[in-house]
Design a protein around this nucleic acid. Sequence first.
DNA 1: TACCTTTGCTAACAGCGTTAGGTAAATCTA
DNA 2: TAGATTTACCTAACGCTGTTAGCAAAGGTA
Lengths: 210, 210
Amino acid sequence: MLTALGKSSITMGILERKIRQKENMRTNILAVAMQLVKDEGWQSLSIRKIADAIEYSVPVIYDHFENKEAILFELSMDGFRLLDRLLEKDKRKFADPEERLRAHAETYWNFAFKNPEYYQLMYGLGMPCSSPGKAKPEFNSFREHISEAIEGIVKDNKSSDEETCFKIYAFWSVLHGLISIVMMRCSDIDDSQMNKKVMDDSVNAFIKNL
Amino acid sequence: MLTALGKSSITMGILERKIRQKENMRTNILAVAMQLVKDEGWQSLSIRKIADAIEYSVPVIYDHFENKEAILFELSMDGFRLLDRLLEKDKRKFADPEERLRAHAETYWNFAFKNPEYYQLMYGLGMPCSSPGKAKPEFNSFREHISEAIEGIVKDNKSSDEETCFKIYAFWSVLHGLISIVMMRCSDIDDSQMNKKVMDDSVNAFIKNL
DNA sequence: TACCTTTGCTAACAGCGTTAGGTAAATCTA
DNA sequence: TAGATTTACCTAACGCTGTTAGCAAAGGTA
């Protein structure tokens, strides 16, 4: 598949079309996979179902992805990029670091519950191949956004770098922890508004204590 | 298998021996499964490997467990019971609610990193069949222990029941969130002592703010 | 036209969870 | 002790999974 593609430069149009088709196939596979996940959950996603959905045979998928994990990884990257775009919006909207931090928390929370499939994949909740450790820039997007906001709030204080670093993780932890607990139904609070109030409360306490 | 076991009461000894053997088999399956998990991780645990390890054929396992998920569920219950015993120790050791809460946090943290397989199973981290929602008393053990301690600290304050409830979840969240982030290698802090300092810091801030 | 690359397929391998059905041993009954 | 019955256990299969080897057809190149 388009392995040795150099050589003649006359048929550039055809080559480009092929590259375009290849990319279309790739994005199509990802789109179809994501749709299957939304419809039936991660656990029932299979290469054969993807092949059925794109109306190609199974091995075609392996021309575009090394294995199933690579597909899941790419989808998780989509999730990180989507979250990043939302956080960037907050950044443009709120100049005040405290307001921005609140907005980031809200955005993170809403992202998780509006896109539970993404969130589960991104943070390995109830997932088979959670591919931990595959650190990429996208992976740290949320931490970097809240870092910026927290450092903005804290900059007048006498906090050390280490203290600030700790606070960043503490903030992230309480959010991620609460989302995980609620999403995995470990909480016995059934009311989603109530759960959100717990988050707001925690965020308030955190900011007050900065 | 021991289905209709009533009838005659002369052969009670044999019946008891059979029940004992059946229980032995059951516990043996669980023990062997846990060992396999510790050696090779959740993802590679299979019924066939368990059968090999106990030196019986595959269907024998289904005489003792409805399916693979039931085995995982039982193992997660073992995890909850183990954690519960440790928390009970704290309770006996520390009468002062603040000291007790700190001990609980420490215990929870140590439990997670000394028994990562249990923790992952109990809270569905990177797990295929995380069986969420199957609430059992064991499931709420940690929350109830910290509830007791937090209520002990807070009882002199003017906190409402709702506020207290929120605080309990906030405390649990920050612990679980940090453990998840570290365990799933989302954190870029590689030093485990450093990570624990983040926890201690958070616990301190939390208690100070009660 | 002859050649070669690309494209896509069929069919298989090895593994998985699960179960139907049969056999041999252990046990109970007479 | 002999026969009937229950229990214990196994073999072999079904339908699924991820993955890959190897082949046939289609396309572009000379």
